[in-house]
Amino acid sequence: PQQTPIRAAMYSIQQLRGELTSISDQPSGILMVYFKNCTVDPSEDITKRVDQFGQIFSQKFAQAVGQRCEGLGKKRFTLGVQLYYKVMESMLKSEEKRLSVQNFSKLLNNATFHTSLLACALEVVLATYVGYSLKNGGSESPETNLCFPWILDVFQLHAFDVYKVIESFIKAEPTLKHDMIEHLGRCEQQIMESIAWKSDSLLFELLRQSREDGTGEQAEPPAT
């Protein structure tokens, strides 16, 4: 049948859900092996953090879309967690191959890494559904409140930390569709062009540090 914008958006949702049907919202056996190989086992922190962010996400989702939608928020969050664990496993496999390392204790005990990865996974889920809402309800649909960078505020994340995850996320998840990769690319641009330069941004601290220890590249001379 003729592919209308709504049908295309519904297809994206079905594709996303289809990709995740066989993925659990708990860490897989392979992930548990990576966790056990860590100097400090991160399993408990990871599952506890997912539970905490699940509650925050559902509450914020209901505030943004409507109180009767808290259950819907939970469903969205579960899809995000499934994608989060799927991509984490894929990232660790490629890092293991690249670095010939099996102990990822520092990375897997880094709360910012986990929160940024979960935020990126949720952004993929939210953008998939918002894409449908926009085409189905127009800009009046309350779900448009969930557009990027809504998720950064929900998790109180520095934009620059999510920026660091996006490229590796795209590399680690080959089933991402072209329009979703484009969307994540636009998120990167939005971060780099504006959000990352807000006064409380992490970027200023990093620039200051790189200037102090001289690791920063020399600024290019102004064009004549």
Binding site: M91, F104, K106, L107, N110, T112, F113, I181
Partner: peptide, 21 residues
């Protein structure tokens, strides 16, 4: 995917980006 501009070097990955290499 040719529209997305990959910028990481071969020797860079998520471990380096989060200072966990």
């Amino acid at each position: 995917t040719q529209d997305y501009h990959f910028g990481l070097e071969d020797h860079e990955g998520i471990s380096e980006l989060f200072d966990c290499d």
